[in-house]
Design a protein around this nucleic acid. Structure first.
Lengths: 224, 224
DNA sequence: ATTTTGTCGGTGACAAAGTCACCAAGTTTC
DNA sequence: GAAACTTGGTGACTTTGTCACCGACAAAAT
């Protein structure tokens, strides 16, 4: 149950509600509920049965696969106003959740029970569009990942990752282990590649920190 | 344009039409058209703009990615009554086709122009369900592939593949190259693994042919 | 301030997988 | 029957993942 003051805040974060008609908004207020999830908390584990879908108001969730050896690979992240479409998928096809989702940055979310979610998909155009859009985006990103891991070399992928991250935060705070989990590789491999990049003067590395100092060098690696 | 005799045949192959109301069927007859596509023909290439979606009546289409070195990996196949959801995805999100689709066995298909397809998704529940279902299935299979290539070893994956295929056709007609394209590996690797399997008495290999003779042996490999 | 504990990263040896170059044996075509 | 193509075998090498182990640094406890 969502009251009017909450609704205001939620509306600001969820563009989809602004496009909704009054009927959907009323339904929303009735069944949705508010939740805070602290960083480090797992939202779903592989094989979980899903009974509600979360729309994120703030924070970031990482969705990843984990192998038997403990190696991880990130499938995608979602944040503001987005939702974990895998949840939706699991709900609609009555399957269990096929990956792990963890909160990276403290998240606030609106939860909608599976049953209502399913009804809304049938009843409201806006809602259906929203789900479609997400499903479609995720299929695209996951296919892109298949392409990456099947065909691109690790040094190229690492170079790409460093370039992308460096545009957000340059001496970036990240451990080798975290990078490995991002790429589906192992810490040792990432360490060796970073050492190589460092010797070539592409980056400067410190404990829990990487700084890109030659973007062009990395760029040419990422194209190789 | 589809006439009544054709419609009969098409209905038999497409369960979705049997569930459709008369309005959708009328629309279908108006805009759909019939096509035969011979084996070996590429339906879409990576980057193609999509202007129609195909529903398969017969035959099999393989959808795969191809890397710079020419290595391939199969994403999925579809046959009778199914459709290439990537096409749908490309249509709905106005993107280009992100892979290659080739006809493996002579195919007959009903084509529906992109414009009409998009309208139907909005207008007809059955149609939307159909598309949703496919999108959802594909996302699941592609995620399973990420898991495979990121974490499972090649010998285990090859063993699984051989087991699955052998249930359909036992001395199976397939070249090492084709197996490699299935798994996203290279011919040499597949050849070496098959040689190893052969020495252990799991399979018997001949030119363009593989016969599984110890399913249990392969099974234990596939679990490793 | 020193010890303890845990995190982070470096190293060498090895195994698995992909690449390259080249060759040999079958098969098809002319 | 020769030529061209397809299929697969081989060795050398590179890249990537795994394992075991160690040292450096940082935060917490004493």
């Amino acid at each position: 149950m969502i009251d009017q003051t909450q609704l205001k805040r939620i509306s600001d974060a969820l563009p989809i509600l602004q496009k909704s008609n009054t009927q959907l908004i009323r339904d929303f207020q009735q069944v949705a509920f508010f939740a805070k999830i602290p960083a480090g908390h797992d939202v779903f584990l592989e094989g979980d049965r899903v009974d509600a879908i979360a729309l994120l108001l703030s924070g970031v969730v990482r969705v990843y696969k984990i192998g038997e050896t403990g190696r991880e690979i990130t499938l995608y992240r979602f944040g503001n106003g987005q939702s974990c479409i895998l949840t939706a998928n699991a709900i609609l096809s009555q399957k269990t959740f096929p990956a792990v989702a963890t909160v990276e940055q403290d998240a606030e979310a609106v939860m909608i029970p599976a049953k209502d979610f399913r009804e809304w998909v049938a009843r409201y155009d806006v809602w259906r569009e929203f789900v479609f859009e997400l499903l479609s985006q995720r299929l695209a990103t996951v296919m892109a990942i298949v392409d990456e891991i099947a065909f691109r070399r690790m040094d190229a992928r690492l170079a790409s990752l460093l370039l992308t991250r460096s545009r957000v935060q340059n001496p970036m705070r990240v451990t080798h282990q975290e990078i490995a989990a991002e790429l589906g590789s192992s810490r040792e491999v990432v360490s060796r590649l970073l050492e190589d990049f460092s010797e070539r003067g592409f980056v400067r590395v410190g404990r829990g920190e990487v700084e890109v100092i030659d973007p062009d060098g990395l760029q040419s690696r990422s194209n190789a």
